[in-house]
């Protein structure tokens, strides 16, 4: 941002802009890619660290914490996935942890990392958006990977012909095949779209509220008025941050559970 104080609109627009290279279809959002990769590496690193120091007796704090998350995911999979597939629990655990950590970046004070980045690069207009799930590319990519797995297991367990029959004869039977094809196609496409848009929408809206709260102190606090607006901003920020912990956890849980359910439906031969 430039040296003079930005207007409210400029402030929000600046925070909604990714740091990118390329153009058109080949635009790469560097901040999204780097932050999500670093969070993925954090999961791998912590898992490797705990894995090397596993205790069979009384586990330490970190191992205990990780075991409780693993138990929670395992229980959810057992409740919602009636088949046996060794891929599902690791997949669900990875999705839950990764999505939760990406959402968690929303709780870091909104100007902290962008300001540090601007100081580091010496560019007062440098962009940095550190919440990967507020980028539709991330949520859509996650949803498309899940969708690819759903198609794979559909073809594996129903067979290619069986899967095609779902498109031909569902939902109106054999007399409306052209309509059935379009409707089933729409239904299948709706799965990744609803997965991606739900996560993106919730986290993006949460971040916008953080920006609006930040603007209270940023634009309204002048002179003695700051004595009123600054504490109000702090209280609102704290309240929204506490509420947001629930939202980020719930969204990570919903993404994980719906992935499991869609995969369970793909395993169902009769569906």
């Amino acid at each position: 941002m430039s040296a003079e104080k930005p207007s409210s609109v400029e402030y929000i627009q600046h925070h909604l802009q990714n740091n990118y290279v390329g153009s058109g279809f080949w635009t790469f959002h560097l901040d999204t890619i780097i932050v999500s990769a670093m969070l993925g590496m954090l999961i791998i690193g912590v898992a490797a660290y705990v894995g090397r120091r596993l205790e069979t007796g009384v586990p330490g704090g970190l191992q205990n914490f990780i075991e409780s998350i693993l138990d929670f995911v395992d229980k959810t999979v057992r409740e919602s996935f009636p088949y046996r597939n060794p891929l599902i629990v690791p997949l669900a655990l990875t999705i839950f942890l990764w999505v939760w950590l990406m959402n968690f970046m929303d709780l870091i004070p909104i100007d902290f990392f962008p300001y540090m980045f601007q100081l580091l690069t010496g560019n007062p207009d440098a962009y940095l958006k550190i919440v990967p799930t507020t980028d539709l590319n991330t949520t859509l990519a996650l949803a498309l990977v899940v969708f690819a797995l759903v198609i794979y297991y559909n073809v594996k367990f129903k067979g290619f012909v069986g899967y095609m029959k779902v498109f031909l004869f569902h939902p109106f039977g054999k007399f409306l095949i052209p309509v059935n094809i379009v409707m089933t196609f729409i239904e299948e496409i709706a799965k990744p779209i609803s997965l991606a848009l739900r996560l993106f929408g919730n986290i993006f809206a949460g971040e916008l509220v953080f920006m609006l709260i930040a603007l209270i102190g940023g634009t309204m606090a002048v002179g003695a008025a700051a004595l009123f607006w600054a504490p109000l901003q702090a209280i609102l920020d704290l309240g929204w941050a506490i509420f947001h912990i629930l939202i980020i956890t719930l969204q990570a849980f919903i993404f994980m559970v719906l992935t499991i359910v869609y995969l369970a439906m793909a395993h169902d031969e009769a569906h």
Binding site: S80, F81, I254, V257, L258, V261
Partner: peptide, 9 residues
């Protein structure tokens, strides 16, 4: 039981 989770969405 898992299909009940679909109601969430």
């Amino acid at each position: 039981q898992g299909f009940n989770f679909l109601m969430i969405g």
